[in-house]
């Protein structure tokens, strides 16, 4: 076949090519299916935005604009009570630390009951796992509210909320780490005639400890993030200051507090990255 220009292709040529390569001209069924699924997504989006009354967004523009202006223009900065702000941030970090530490300690125990290779009794294993599902399935803020109801307003409820949700998360992740353990290393230690405590110390621990530390550090990071909002339901920390000042219409102060929190969280992420590198090297995840 020799040179052929695009402009010179006639309908006859197209028909002839189509006859020889019918599939190259698009499978009508597949094309329709694809178009239909995109149409479905589009229709759903339009419908759901209508359902959620997207029109309110347009009518609210004045109010939203006023809000943004007041967040950006900072007034009377001398009266912002910085001591309370930084105390709130410190309290948030402290809550996250105590909560994560307690969560870690309890998760260490629970994980061995939830892992297949360390808990052969299926009934217990499943019971523990379902309990962990409940701890994880309920959001930390919900736990916060529940504990506020149980023990009253303040950081105690916050610590308990972080404790219980971190315990659920970590115990699940730890138990997966235990299940993924390399049997050969354990066999190697056992072959030296070591007793059970030594098998755990030299066979299991070196494999799971770096993973555990890494997971707990991540958990601490994510808890500092989530602990900032526990205060919205009264469970202590900076969130209480945010919601108080928001309710009082002090939007500039809210913006300032949020910026500070973002900086503090970035610093914690950076610091925990350093610790992770120091203890477990780059391979730890």
């Amino acid at each position: 076949m020799s040179t052929l220009t695009y402009a010179a292709i006639s309908d006859v040529d197209i028909a002839a090519t189509r006859k020889r390569h019918p599939k190259a001209f698009g499978d009508p069924f597949a094309t329709t299916l694809k178009a239909a699924s995109w149409a479905f997504i589009a229709v759903y989006l339009v419908w759901s935005l209508g359902f959620f009354e997207i029109g309110k967004l347009l009518s609210a523009s004045d109010r939203a604009w006023a809000l943004i202006t007041r967040m950006v223009v900072w007034q009377d900065m001398a009266t912002w009570q910085y001591y309370n702000i930084y105390k709130g941030i410190a309290q948030t970090i402290a809550m996250a630390f105590v909560g994560t530490l307690l969560g870690t300690i309890f998760a260490l125990g629970l994980a061995f009951f939830a892992a297949r290779n360390t808990m052969p009794v299926g009934v217990i294993r499943h019971a523990v796992r379902r309990m962990l599902d409940v701890f994880r399935g309920i959001d930390q803020v919900v736990w916060g509210l529940v504990f506020v109801r149980a023990v009253g307003l303040g950081p105690l409820a916050g610590v308990l909320a972080i404790w219980i949700s971190d315990m659920g998360n970590l115990a699940k992740l730890y138990s997966e780490a235990i299940e993924n353990i390399d049997r050969k290393q354990v066999e190697g230690v056992r072959a030296t005639g070591a007793d059970t405590s030594r098998i755990i110390r030299f066979g299991y621990l070196p494999q799971i400890l770096p993973v555990f530390i890494s997971l707990s550090l991540y958990s601490f990071e994510s808890s500092t993030r989530s602990a900032t909002i526990l205060g919205l339901v009264g469970a202590g920390g900076i969130g209480m200051i945010i919601i108080e000042r928001f309710r009082a219409g002090l939007f500039d102060q809210v913006a300032f507090v949020v910026l500070n929190v973002l900086v503090v969280i970035a610093v914690i992420d950076w610091g925990s990255g350093l610790i992770r590198k120091r203890f477990i090297g780059e391979r730890g995840h």
């Binding site: 959620f52 609210a60 900032t228 928001f246």
Partner: peptide, 21 residues
């Protein structure tokens, strides 16, 4: 991604009113 959802929600409820939007 730095600001939690619920904080955005708090501010947006003030701006567009109570409701799922």
């Amino acid at each position: 991604r730095g600001v939690p959802e619920i904080l955005f929600a708090l501010i947006l409820v003030f701006a567009v009113g109570i409701g799922p939007l």
